[in-house]
Design a protein around this nucleic acid. Structure first.
Ligand code: SF4
Ligand code: SF4
Lengths: 176, 176
DNA sequence: CCTAAACAAGACCAATTCGGTACGAATTTA
DNA sequence: TAAATTCGTACCGAATTGGTCTTGTTTAGG
């Protein structure tokens, strides 16, 4: 369906949550950790998004590796945005989680075995056009634009049903 | 990687081949079947693209169901383009093979369980913007634009390595 | 009528990828 | 030292994908 993976969607959601909290703290200043402003822990983010802690942690690590977040280890550690929300493009988030954006094997910088004989394939040029158009679309929207004009409510309801395998539905339980 | 499935890529390649043959026949008129102009069989297409016959057949059926091709059953049957190449968008091909284009579960016309509580998710609007941008990009390029200005050579070399499971590399062998 | 050529439809299977979990190690603060 | 927290990686089950196969159905032609 030409859809991005669920993980990527989660990642953007987490980033949005992070950015929202960032805005919120400017007003309230109330945080779980001892005053480390704009710093969120994986557990806290997990609770606020309704996702599993481990999953959130994995994503956060990935995003930090991509340079989108700065991390602080140890007690009272956590993550915070590396740049202002309006300087973080959706493209950057997607790339951090799923790797370079390439609609076909031939488009983009040939990371991973390109389909052989692409030199003869008449379509590579067309695909490249499409590919860069998509990349532009993704790069044109920043995290700030993904947020609603008003900051998120401090206690957002859990989003995304977990569809947890064996009969468990943690997210719904948390919501109820 | 935000890539479209290999099948989709195959589909476009097949369509291009069909369109190329269409152009070619205007000049040469030489065809394997008994003069059924612009009509190609699955086997013929498979041979010219270097893909497996069964795979090509499946794709052709899919494309026909999507209304992009017309099919003629029985002896001397085959497929031909339903419309002129410049009236077939890449978007149409992608949609025919992978279903509606929806970058997230919430974007697009909610086919298949949308992620619960999307009403509360602050990002649906942003995703919709991106989604329609991508759809526009795909819809802006037609099959005709994917082809090179000159018609394909009648006997194109096989494209796309099959990566056939146990150590076989048919395409490379054919190329060498 | 009979056969061959071709599409139609779906079942089926192996391989990969995806979503999610678990555990141990490193690092920082108290 | 103890607690909190990230880091890294390995792992597993399930879903998806890529590809094959089998069994019709339709048409042309002898
Ligand atoms: S070279 Fe052609 S066939 Fe190969 S991935 Fe690119 S577009 Fe597809
Ligand atoms: S509603 Fe939000 S969390 Fe759910 S799919 Fe859409 S963007 Fe992702």
């Amino acid at each position: 369906m030409l859809k991005l993976s669920r993980m990527t969607d989660y990642a953007v959601l987490i980033m949005a949550q992070l950015a929202g909290a960032d805005q919120a703290v400017a007003g309230t200043g109330s945080f779980a950790n001892g005053g480390n402003e704009g710093m969120d822990t994986a557990s806290g983010l997990a609770e606020r998004t309704g996702l599993q802690q481990a999953t959130v942690a994995k994503l956060l690590r990935l995003l930090a590796q991509g340079g989108l977040l700065t991390s602080q280890r140890g007690a009272h550690g956590g993550y915070m945005l590396a740049r202002a929300p309006q300087d973080i493009t959706v493209s950057a988030i997607v790339t951090a989680v799923e790797g370079p954006i390439a609609i076909t094997a031939c488009a983009d910088g040939h990371s991973g075995e390109p389909c052989s004989l692409e030199i003869l394939c008449p379509m590579s040029h067309g695909w490249n056009r499409i590919n860069s158009a998509i990349r532009t679309a993704l790069a044109d929207i920043t995290l700030a634009e993904m947020l609603p004009p008003a900051p998120l409510p401090a206690r957002a309801a859990p989003v995304m049903a977990a569809k947890a395998g064996p009969g468990k539905d943690a997210a719904l339980a948390a919501a109820g």
